[in-house]
């Protein structure tokens, strides 16, 4: 399976998520998966300005040329897109949110009815499954984790996919690798 990891850790002084991902990626590779990891904080990625150029000017591509194109290309051609982040103020990091907002070129502006709700139409034939890996903060409670899961599950719906994995860095990386293996 092709796995793309979006490392949303904002700060290189925080080691927990970085170390966990390094271990997990190693495990996944020894099990035959192809892993591509993006350290978002070190990349040149601007924020979405809401111009909708990716829908009405250069369909499928953002008009801002930066590293987001690399992420979009890798993401849409993967089998699993893993959003990894420390929990900050009850949600995934701004660094991760920035790239999430820049993934909208992968969708089509037209709406359709899907399971009784209005959602975006597909642009591509297939979309990767969505995974979520979180590092708890001292103030993170169960309600926070449930909220983040719920939000990513809905985001996955809009990306014509499903949230298929949620992990915590507090659990062994072996466990996460096993769960991802079973997908």
């Amino acid at each position: 399976m092709k796995i793309v990891v979006l490392n949303g850790s904002p700060d290189s002084r925080r080691f927990e998520l970085d170390c966990y991902l390094a271990e997990l990626e190693g495990l996944l590779e020894t099990r035959g998966h192809v892993v591509k990891s993006f350290e978002l904080r070190a990349m040149n990625i601007g924020h979405c300005t809401g111009c909708w150029g990716c829908w009405v000017k250069t369909p499928g591509e953002c008009v801002i040329r930066d590293d987001s194109q690399k992420v979009c290309r890798a993401a849409i051609n993967s089998d699993l897109l893993l959003f990894a982040s420390p929990v900050i103020m009850g949600f995934t990091s701004a660094v991760l949110k920035k790239i999430s907002d820049r993934l909208i070129p992968l969708l089509h502006p037209y709406f359709e009815i899907d399971r009784g709700e209005i959602h975006h139409r597909k642009r591509y034939e297939r979309y990767p499954a969505v995974g979520l890996l979180l590092e708890r903060a001292t103030d993170t409670d169960e309600e926070d984790l449930e909220l983040i899961r719920d939000i990513y599950a809905r985001m996955a719906l809009d990306f014509k996919s499903e949230l298929k994995f949620t992990g915590l860095t507090g659990n062994p990386a072996e466990e996460a690798a096993d769960a991802l293996d079973r997908l």
Binding site: H47, C48, M89, S93, A94, K97, S100, D158
Partner: peptide, 23 residues
């Protein structure tokens, strides 16, 4: 603000993180 990929836009999350000392 508008809903953005099923949550808040980046600038709002960025602001929220900056407010951590006010908790």
């Amino acid at each position: 603000f508008p809903l953005y990929t099923d949550c808040m836009p980046w600038a709002v999350k960025n602001f929220i993180e900056a407010l951590a000392p006010f908790c």
